[in-house]
Design a protein around this nucleic acid. Structure first.
Length: 917
RNA sequence: AGGCGGAUAGCUCAGUUGGGAGAGCGCUGCCCUUACAAGGCAGAAGUCGCAGGUUCGAUCCCUGUUCCGCCUACCA
């Protein structure tokens, strides 16, 4: 035995720093396009360059790394494509806040200078993120980093835009869109978060134009928008109002009258009064109704969502009261005016959903505006089919319906944003045709380009206007939705639109690993774009993992004090511990609430492994054993059989993305089978290192452990690499060693049976020793009763091992005597064998009896179990008589030992009776 | 409003052809046994949200219900 070559406690810090650097130096993560092996590719969900990574990223990237590392070890040509997202609005907001703190603004800087600032921030933030990913052990091909605004990817964006336009799948038009009055930009439907809030439902009297003494009751939650009313709608079959259809009502506080129209789609007769005001410029439903009835659209708000009324729109008194106010502040004023004039019938509390900007939480306003839209239905159709027919698998499958439901009901996608950070829209307008005025309006956020302007859509700036030949062409100042470029990620990162070898080798990619929160934002759009531009799905499997709620999100909140910073965790417990925790908690269908105690537990696990390695190295002492293929001991055959089962199970679980189960299996096997049992057993032959038995034990210890390091490596890359390097090995890194595969010849039912018997016997003896406070080292007898002859002889041959593990000399004695506490024998039963533990010396019998009583309860449960099994056998396939007899015999044996016959015998009779009935 | 998910030990969570209720942490007792005290052995602890139903038998399947969470949504 030699001095330990490793420290007593595993110190992750320096190990992790060293290996994350070394792996990259060795270029182990680099994928080659000339590699002929089957390929396996994952594109990273590109983190936003808005700051640093949170625990959700750690989870996401750990899972990807597990998949990638295993495939790499299995011999695939693996590519994990790393990169980042420019995250338009989010990043712009971050930098704008910085500017605000400096007392300046983007308007002051101007567009060009501002973009420089954002670029600087991107360099900084991007660097932080890459460092964090490396720290996490992410085995990305770092030589291939991509950014959504790289020149190549920007080319892809422009080309896609032009092609979609040419194919009639992209158009510009004045529509009602979601407008964030703080970000001053349009948002797509899914960029609006809905939040419940309590408002009021107002019932307002609208006087009839023909007879102002009569009025129509109209219900609304937003009375301030009545200043933009252009109709009141009722249901065509509503007898209350049928006679009014076609006549007009006075719009209060204005000088207008509007028609009463019949609209069965807009109006629900049951709700409110059955009459609805129609404000096409400020409500999505009203907009559509307005289109159906050819109603004018009256805009009453500016871009800040403040009321902006002209004399033509409202009475002077009203204008004075509300002009320039945001809607929420104007509402009570309007309410007051209506009440004063006796037109407010009632106002009652009412629950409604409030739309908020997903980036800044400001209440969004439906806003009439010129924007670019993707005509999405023709793209969605094939993307629905691809999931329906399984070309793309969404896992867990429960999310599939979520996806399909959303896709089938999808609405056109507003892709233009009135911000500066992003891909500027490749469309030009001719100043010769439209004057040079319209762009200047852009700075105050007003609609940027005339609605009727005809854009020239092209990848590069055209030389001249085709209509007037002017060369004064200006580019559309808007940029694209950040998700537009993300949608191209699986092929733009591989070099599209160039026909690169990367595309050929790695597209379609294999698996996408992502959180549910971006299923619609990102996954759905990648599938649509992949099918459209590559003619094939972007990935085969989509694995959707649970969410870890971060400080900004809902679940983890700073006020609750449960926010966990991955960097801090990695510092404190080590990266492997964090990774293993995340993998173990990645059960489908449940959000991950990260418990720090759990991380600590897996830190201890890493240390356990470390110390097992120390033990092996200590005994190895430079010795190399020839492989004893033919004379494995029973213990060796047992642990190899268990190892084989573990290898099979881990592979199966990872194949099904059950990282949690795979982690659990590894943990249990390494700690509670390999360390607790096999390693302890091996100490027996190792007592004399010179023997053949010792050599044999060393060999199997090492062989099993080396397999385990490889099996565990994708989960805990650092500690396994560090240990593997100290074991006898060939090659320069565990990263590219083969991943363990099932070895059927290791399977041994016989050895497993024998050792399960051994484990039970040892446990019982330990229990007896503990219950009686019977000191270790004292001789202990094992009396075997009621066991099969085979079991007895097995126990006999295993006696030295049992004695070793039970801590005391042991004698195995077949006995037919009935043991009892009185005779100084403690009898314990479980799983069909009964052992009596003979103790020497004085025993506190009162204490012993008290404890034995508890054991009887266990025996009672055992009988219930047997009864259940018997009943099952009887009902399933008609239990043979000998099975019944065997169970009866066991019952009687247990009963005789513990004197609780009546209940169980009665049960048995009941079962037999019901079986024959 | 609709859809989905969750409710299991003090805490965080596993648990599918329906039959034995589990892990980690915490807790109790014993042990510094030369890999590991971040350890070993033994143990206590749960009417599996509630109420019905199907079944010989339900944490599991069905119906209803309560609470929590998420997604989608135009109910003025």
């Amino acid at each position: 035995m030699s001095q330990p070559q490793l420290d007593k406690i595993y110190d992750p810090k320096q190990v992790e720093e060293r290996w994350s650097r070394r792996w990259i130096e060795l270029r182990l993560f680099h994928a080659s396009v000339s590699d002929r092996r089957p390929s396996y590719c994952i594109v990273i969900p590109p983190p936003n360059v808005t700051g640093s990574l949170h625990v959700g990223h750690a989870l996401n990237n750990t899972l990807q790394d597990i998949l990638i590392r295993r495939r790499r070890m299995q011999g695939y040509n693996t590519l994990w494509m790393p990169g980042m997202d420019h995250a338009g609005i989010a990043t712009q907001n971050v930098v704008e806040r910085q500017l605000q703190a400096e007392g300046t603004s983007r308007e002051v800087l101007g567009r060009e200078e501002f973009l420089n600032r954002v670029q600087q921030w991107k360099e900084h933030s991007g660097g932080v993120i890459i460092a964090q990913l490396k720290r996490l052990g992410a085995s990305c091909d770092w030589e291939r980093q991509r950014f959504t605004m790289d020149p190549g990817l920007s080319e892809a964006v422009k080309l896609v835009f032009v092609r979609l336009y040419e194919d009639g799948l992209l158009y510009r038009g004045e529509r009602l869109i979601n407008w964030c009055p703080r970000c001053l930009t349009a948002l797509s439907d899914i960029e609006v978060e809905h939040e419940d809030s309590t408002g009021k439902l107002y019932t307002i009297r609208y006087p009839l134009a023909d007879d102002p003494s009569q009025y129509l009751l109209v219900a609304t939650t937003r009375p301030e928008t009545m200043l933009g009313d252009t109709a009141v709608a009722v249901h065509p079959e509503d007898d209350r109002y049928r006679h009014l259809i076609g006549s007009r009502v006075q719009v209060l506080l204005t000088r207008r009258t509007v028609p009463i129209v019949a609209d069965p789609i807009l109006v629900d007769r049951e709700f409110g009064t059955g009459a609805v005001k129609v404000t096409p410029a400020h409500d999505f439903n009203d907009f559509e109704a307005g289109e159906r009835h050819g109603l004018p659209r009256i805009k009453i708000m500016d871009i800040h969502a403040n009321l902006q009324l002209t004399d033509a729109l409202a009475e002077p008194e009203v204008i004075e009261a509300v002009n320039g106010l945001p809607a929420a502040k104007a509402r009570p004023k309007i309410e007051q005016l209506l009440a004063e004039r006796g037109f407010l019938e009632k106002a009652e509390p009412h629950k409604m959903a409030l739309g908020k900007c997903y980036r800044c939480k400001t209440v969004v306003e439906p806003f009439l505006s010129d924007q670019w839209f993707v005509n999405i239905k023709p793209l969605a159709q094939p993307a629905v089919h691809a999931v329906e027919d399984g070309r793309v698998r969404i896992l867990p499958e429960s999310w599939k319906n979520n996806y399909l439901g959303w896709m089938r009901d999808i609405k056109d996608w507003c892709v233009s944003r009135q911000i500066w950070w992003g891909h500027q829209i490749p469309a030009w307008y001719c100043e010769g045709c439209y004057g040079s005025d319209f762009l200047r309006r852009a700075s105050d956020g007003q609609p940027l380009v005339p609605s009727d302007a005809v854009p020239i859509v092209a990848q590069t700036k055209p030389a001249a206007c085709s209509t007037c030949s002017s060369n004064r062409l200006v580019q559309d100042p808007d940029v694209l939705d950040t998700w537009f470029s993300s949608a191209l990620w699986p092929f733009s990162t591989l070099g599209w639109p160039q026909q690169t070898p990367e595309l050929k080798v790695f597209y379609p990619t294999s698996t996408l690993v992502t959180g549910l929160d971006i299923l619609f934002f990102w996954v759905a759009r990648m599938i649509m774009m992949g099918l459209k531009f590559m003619g094939d799905v972007p990935f085969r499997d989509v694995y959707i993992h649970a969410l870890v709620r971060d400080a900004e999100g809902q679940k983890m909140s700073k006020s609750k004090g449960n926010v966990i910073d991955p960097l801090q965790v990695m510092d404190q417990y080590g990266t492997d511990a964090l990774r293993f925790t995340l993998a173990a908690m990645a059960s489908p269908g449940r959000d991950v609430k990260l418990a720090e105690e759990r991380i600590e537990g897996y830190r201890n696990f890493a240390n356990k492994i470390w110390n097992a390695a120390r033990f092996i190295l200590m005994h190895l002492d430079g010795k190399r054993e020839a492989r004893p293929a033919h004379d494995r001991s029973v213990a060796d055959r047992w642990i190899l059989s268990r190892l084989n089962a573990t290898i099979r199970a881990v592979n199966q679980e990872v194949d099904q993305y059950r990282f949690d189960r795979a982690a659990g299996i590894l943990y249990h096997f390494i700690w509670h089978e390999y360390c607790d049992w096999y390693l302890e057993l091996a100490k027996l032959p190792l007592q004399d290192p010179s023997t053949a038995d010792a050599a044999r034990a060393r060999q199997t210890l090492l062989e099993t452990f080396e397999h385990l390091m490889r099996l565990l490596h994708p989960f805990m890359p650092f500690v396994t690499e560090e240990i593997w390097q100290t074991l006898p090995h060939e090659g320069n890194s565990i990263v590219i060693q083969s991943y363990p595969a099932e070895q059927p010849e290791w399977h041994s039912e016989d050895a497993e049976d024998a050792y399960s018997l051994l484990q039970r016997a040892v446990s019982l003896m330990r229990t007896g020793r503990s219950l009686l406070d019977y000191a270790p080292g004292k001789s202990i007898g094992l009396h075997v009763m009621g066991a099969q002859e085979q079991d007895r002889s097995r126990l006999d041959s295993l006696a030295p091992a049992i004695g070793h593990l039970a801590r005391g000399p042991v004698s195995v004695t077949p006995t037919i005597t009935t043991p009892s506490a009185d005779s100084g024998l403690l009898s314990l039963a479980a799983e069909g064998i009964t052992v009596g533990v003979a103790v020497e010396g004085d025993v506190d019998l009162v204490k012993a009896l008290d404890r034995i009583k508890k054991q009887k309860d266990e025996a009672g449960k055992e009988m219930n179990r047997l009864s259940a099994k018997l009943a099952n056998a009887g009902f399933v396939e008609k239990a043979p008589q000998e099975v019944i007899d065997e169970h009866r015999a066991r019952l009687q044996l247990l009963t005789r030992d513990h004197g609780i016959l009546d209940r169980s015998e009665q049960q048995l009779q009941d079962i037999l009776r019901s079986r024959t009935a």
